[in-house]
Design a protein around this nucleic acid. Structure first.
Length: 161
DNA sequence: GCCAACGTTGGC
DNA sequence: GCCAACGTTGGC
């Protein structure tokens, strides 16, 4: 019997809306990751397994970057907001029988002592392929390689340059 | 099926 | 606030 290797992801959130500190304070330190409305990002959410590691990314802020880590606590399930006419994420084309969008649950794992900034990551060795660093990247959910994961966590433990 | 218009994301 | 990138929409 083979066990699927732990995989890693990066998920973006605007800290003014929901930050790593909000996740740490949340009930059960868990939240539903809802509202993803991009097919490529959705497909990544579908591929995520319980136990996978997540880099919690702060975007839309003066210091965008990796702010902490989380763990996938529940694999993809139909995003309830797609069925809710009052939700900003409502999708009239989605039905309970044929849902279009998925959510998953994240559990808090760690808040970095400081945000590892985009700038710092751009200058780091071994991250040339990291999707979030690519020009024009807008995907809110992207895969992260084990090597990238290791490098970012190592930088997080280091004092800022 | 093409592609222009439009809307959104997100760094700067 | 600007604007590049890029996904989506809809006319044809």
């Amino acid at each position: 019997m083979s066990v699927m290797a732990r995989r890693y992801w990066l998920m973006k959130s605007e800290p003014g809306v929901f930050s790593i500190a909000d996740l740490e304070r949340a009930k059960g330190q868990t939240t539903g990751w809802e509202g993803v409305r991009n097919y490529q990002a959705r497909n990544f959410l579908r591929a995520a397994q319980v136990g996978d590691g997540v880099l919690f990314w702060h975007s839309g802020t003066a210091q965008p970057g990796a702010a902490g880590t989380a763990v996938v606590a529940r694999a993809a399930y139909p995003d309830p907001t797609q069925f809710d006419p009052r939700s900003e994420y409502h999708d009239p084309a989605a039905t309970e029988a044929e849902p279009r969008w998925v959510a998953l649950d994240l559990r808090f794992e760690s808040a970095f002592p400081r945000v590892v900034t985009l700038d710092e990551l751009r200058g780091a060795e071994g991250l040339a392929e990291m999707i979030v660093l690519r020009r024009g990247n807008r995907l809110s959910v992207t895969p992260v390689s084990p090597g990238e994961w290791r490098i970012v966590l190592r930088l997080a433990r280091r004092a800022p340059r």
